[in-house]
Computed example of a mutant assay.
Amino acid sequence: MVRPLSALIGAALALTVLTVPVSAQTPPPLQTVELFPQDPGSAVVEALQVVARPPGPALWLVEKGGAKLYVIGSAPPLPHQLKWDSPRLNRAMDQASLVLIPPEASVGPLQVTKFFLTGGGGVRYRPFSKNLEERLPADLKARFVSARERAGRTAVPYKDWKPAVAGFILLSDFRQAAGLSEAKPVSTIERMAKTKGVKVKAMSQYRLGPILASAGKLSDEANLACLRDALTELEYDGAHPTDMGTDWANGDLASVRARYSSSAAQRCVMRAPGGPALLAQQIGQSADALNEALNRPGVTIAVVDLAFLLPSNGVLDRLKASGATITSPAD
C-alpha cells in the first residue's frame, strides 16, 4: 500500500506537540501516564450551575467590554456520521462576523522535500534495518499487530517508521476504518460558517521546520512510551466508538470530562524535556487569540479543544483572569 504524500506528512506532523528539542542532559525517567489524568479542572467550569441542559454541545459565552465570544469545546475524534444540532450555536452564527478554529501548521516545500529525502527527518529507520514489529518488545508487538489487524492494515505501511510515529499513523488509520473523524467538529463548524457567509480564521500558525528537524530525537524509551500511549488510546476508541460523540453532542460535559482529558500526543509531550512548557505555551496562544477577539466589538465564535479549555489555568481560567465574564448562555 502506497501512502499518499499528504497522508505521510499529516501522520508525521501528528507529533507536533511531542517533538520538542531534546536537551543534551539525561532526560528524567519516564513516568506512567494515566489515560485520562485527573486535573482539578477549571474554576470557571466548577462554578457553573446549569439546572436544565439545553440541546447541543457545551457552549460558553465570554463577554468583555461589550464584545461577545461563544466558545464550543471540541473532543476529537467524533463519529463521522454523528448528527447534532445546537439552536444556541445557530443563533450565535447568525450574529457572528468571525469563527476562530485551532492553529494551523505552516511548512514550506523545501522543508517537506528535505524531510522525505533524509528518511523522515530521523523518524524512519535506516534502510536495511529490522522492520518495526521485529524491534518491538513482545507485549507491544502483540498489541500493535492486533491493532493494525483491527484497522485492516498489513505491516507494510508502518515497517520503516520509528515506534512513536508508527503509533500515530496506526491510530489515525484505525479511526478512519472505525468511522471516527479527527477533523470533527471543526470541519462541521467551518461548513456552518461558510454557509452563513461568516469568515473563518485559524487562531495562529506555527512553523514546522524545527519540529521536523527534532522529530528523530526522541529516545528509544520515549518512542516506546509514545507507542504505548497511542495504542492505549486506540484500544479505548475501539471499546467506546460512539459514547464520546453522543455525550459531546448532548452537552453532557460531566461524562465527557470523565473520559476525555488529552490526546496521546499531549500525554507524550509531558514526558519530553520542555514538554509541559510547550503545552502551556499553546494554551497561552489560544487564550491570547480569544482575548484579541474580545478587544473588538461584535460576536465571535471559537472552537477550542476541551483539553486546553477545561484544565486548571486553561483557556477559560485565563480569560476570566483577564477580566472577562464567563457564563452559560440562556436557551
Rank of each mutant, 00 (worst) to 15 (best):
T19W: 06
G298S: 07
E190C: 09
A330R: 10
G298Q: 11
K162S: 06
P79V: 00
A52F: 10
G41I: 03
V71W: 03
L171I: 00
L30E: 13
A289V: 00
V20R: 01
G209T: 15
L180R: 04
V2F: 13
K159H: 06
P76F: 08
A239F: 04
V200M: 13
I189M: 06
S129K: 02
T327H: 13
D317H: 15
S106L: 09
D317N: 10
P102R: 01
F36R: 10
S97P: 04
G298F: 12
E63K: 08
L294C: 10
A58N: 14
G238F: 09
L18P: 00
Q205N: 15
L69F: 14
L290W: 00
L35T: 11
G167L: 00
V186F: 01
L279K: 08
K194S: 10
D85F: 09
P157R: 02
L69V: 04
A47G: 09
S328C: 11
V123Y: 11
T242P: 09
A142R: 05
L61D: 07
K64G: 13
Q205H: 12
K217G: 14
G10L: 06
A75D: 10
K64L: 12
K83Y: 05
V269H: 09
T242H: 11
A166M: 01
L231T: 02
W84L: 02
D252H: 06
S23H: 12
K83S: 05
V303Y: 09
F115Q: 08
E182S: 06
F174A: 00
Y206R: 15
G122V: 04
A92N: 03
G65M: 11
I326G: 11
I169N: 02
V145E: 01
D94V: 01
A213K: 09
T300G: 09
P37V: 07
R267C: 09
T118F: 15
L89T: 01
K217E: 13
N90I: 10
R3S: 07
P28G: 10
A213W: 10
Q25W: 13
L69R: 12
G108T: 14
R91A: 10
L306D: 13
D173C: 00
H80Q: 15
S106Q: 05
Q282S: 11
T118K: 12
A164D: 04
R153I: 07
V269R: 04
V50P: 11
K201V: 13
Q285R: 14
Q281Y: 02
D85K: 07
G122Y: 07
K217H: 10
P163R: 03
T113W: 11
V198G: 02
A12E: 07
A75F: 11
Q266N: 14
P137V: 06
